[in-house]
Amino acid sequence: MARDSRDQQLIELKDTVKELNTTIRNLNALIEAANKREEEHLLKEQEHIEREKVLQEQIDYLTKKLFGKSSEKRDEFEGQLNLFNEAETLKAEPDPEEQEFTTVEKHTRKKKSKMADKFANLPVQEVILDVPENERFCDVCGTPLERIGKEFLRREIEFIKPSIKIIYYYSVSYGCPKCKINAEVPHIVRGRDGQAHMLHGMASAGTVAWVMYQKYVNSLPLYRQEKDFKMYGAEICRGTIANWIINNAEEFFKPMCNYFQRKLVAGRYAMADETPVQVLKEPGRRPETKSYMCYVMSSCLIPKSL
């Protein structure tokens, strides 16, 4: 009976040990989880501190940039190395007897241009503010006044806007009165301007040059030039201006194009560059069809030094 009691106690002790081991393992797991959470919390706290430090540095920099002095000289911060003047900082004070003196050559500043130099190429017109003739008498004794000089008052820059006018050319004819009666063919002489009229349209050479200059130098579109002509009193549509440019450029640049063509054919080889462009209203082709603009250069056009 006593032996059964001891066996029962032994069994109970073994169960108690097993339960205690289980409890110990659970406690160890809880401790590990708590330690892990604490490490994560410390890591987040460290990241938060670093982030606050970075933000504070940015705030200090922006505050100094906004409210600090605007001098280009860089301030030295405590504890920060000077990368540019390190040698000068670490160098000992030199001996006055070993100092070398360098002489800097004197240089003069660029002379500022005067107002008279800026407008030296412009025409000058003087406006005389004269006294009316009925006021050129002395108010005291009535003696006629004499001119004693003139005084400079002010200077103005006046822009004279372009103007448009129509020029009619007439050729005057002269005939011999005797030949008109006696000769079989009358002798008639007409006035000529001395040069053939090669321009296309009513525009003069100066007008064509002006619209080309506005278009290709000042980048002024044709519709804006059309508005300018209307403002000056002339109803000229942009299509007419385009015809002036195209037809006259084709006529006057044709000799140059023929010259380059002859040079191109005479060369040993030719180099070409194709640039894709879109051409509208091209006969027999859709607007979406890709076209090419070719730039061709001959070996005759290349300098020999190349």
Results as ranks from 00 to 15, higher is better:
Met1Gly: 15
Ala2Met: 03
Arg3Pro: 03
Ser5Ala: 07
Ser5Thr: 02
Ser5Met: 04
Gln9Pro: 00
Leu10Thr: 06
Glu12Ser: 11
Leu13Gly: 05
Leu13Glu: 11
Leu13Met: 12
Leu13Ser: 10
Leu13Ala: 13
Asn21Leu: 06
Thr22Gly: 10
Thr23Phe: 01
Arg25Pro: 00
Arg25Ala: 13
Asn28Ser: 13
Ala29Cys: 07
Glu32Ser: 11
Ala34Cys: 07
Asn35Thr: 04
Asn35Trp: 03
Lys36Ala: 12
Glu38Asn: 04
Glu40Met: 05
Gln46Ser: 08
His48Gly: 12
Ile49Gln: 15
Glu50Gln: 06
Glu52Met: 12
Val54Gly: 02
Glu57Cys: 10
Lys73Met: 06
Arg74Trp: 02
Glu76His: 13
Glu76Met: 15
Glu78Ala: 14
Leu81Trp: 03
Asn82Arg: 05
Leu83His: 06
Leu83Val: 07
Asn85Pro: 04
Ala87Arg: 09
Thr89Asp: 13
Ala92Trp: 00
Glu93Trp: 01
Glu93Ala: 11
Asp95Ala: 12
Asp95Thr: 08
Phe101Asn: 14
Thr102Ile: 08
Thr103Gln: 06
Val104Met: 07
Glu105Met: 01
Arg109Asp: 06
Ala116Arg: 09
Asp117Pro: 01
Asp117Ser: 10
Lys118Phe: 09
Phe119Thr: 08
Ala120Ser: 13
Leu122Ser: 08
Val124Gln: 01
Glu126Thr: 10
Val127Cys: 10
Ile128Lys: 11
Glu133Ser: 05
Asn134Ala: 14
Asn134Glu: 15
Glu135Ala: 04
Arg136Val: 06
Arg136Pro: 01
Cys138Ser: 04
Cys141Thr: 07
Gly142Phe: 05
Glu146Cys: 05
Arg147Asp: 09
Gly149Pro: 01
Lys150Pro: 00
Lys150Arg: 09
Lys150His: 04
Glu151Pro: 00
Glu151Asn: 02
Phe152Tyr: 12
Ile157Leu: 12
Phe159Asn: 14
Ser163Cys: 10
Ser171Cys: 11
Val172Trp: 00
Glu184Ala: 15
Glu184Cys: 12
Pro186Met: 09
His187Trp: 07
His187Val: 15
Arg190Tyr: 09
Arg190Ser: 11
Gly194Pro: 01
Ala196Val: 14
Met198Gly: 08
Leu199Arg: 11
His200Glu: 10
Ala203Trp: 00
Thr207Asp: 12
Met212Gly: 05
Tyr216Ser: 07
Leu220Arg: 09
Leu222Val: 03
Gln225Thr: 07
Lys230Thr: 05
Tyr232Asp: 11
Glu235Lys: 10
Gly239Glu: 14
Thr240Cys: 03
Asn243Ala: 12
Asn243Leu: 06
Ile245Pro: 03
Asn247Leu: 13
Glu250Arg: 09
Phe252Leu: 09
Lys254His: 00
Pro255Ile: 02
Met256Asn: 13
Cys257Thr: 02
Asn258Ala: 03
Gln261Arg: 05
Arg262Trp: 03
Ala266Met: 01
Ala270Pro: 00
Ala270Ser: 12
Ala272His: 05
Glu274Pro: 01
Val279Tyr: 02
Leu280Glu: 04
Arg286Asn: 14
Pro287Trp: 02
Glu288Pro: 01
Glu288Lys: 14
Ser291Glu: 09
Tyr292Ala: 10
Val296Met: 13
Ser298Thr: 12
Ser299His: 02
Cys300Ala: 08
Pro303Gln: 10
Pro303Lys: 03
Lys304Tyr: 04
Leu306Ile: 12
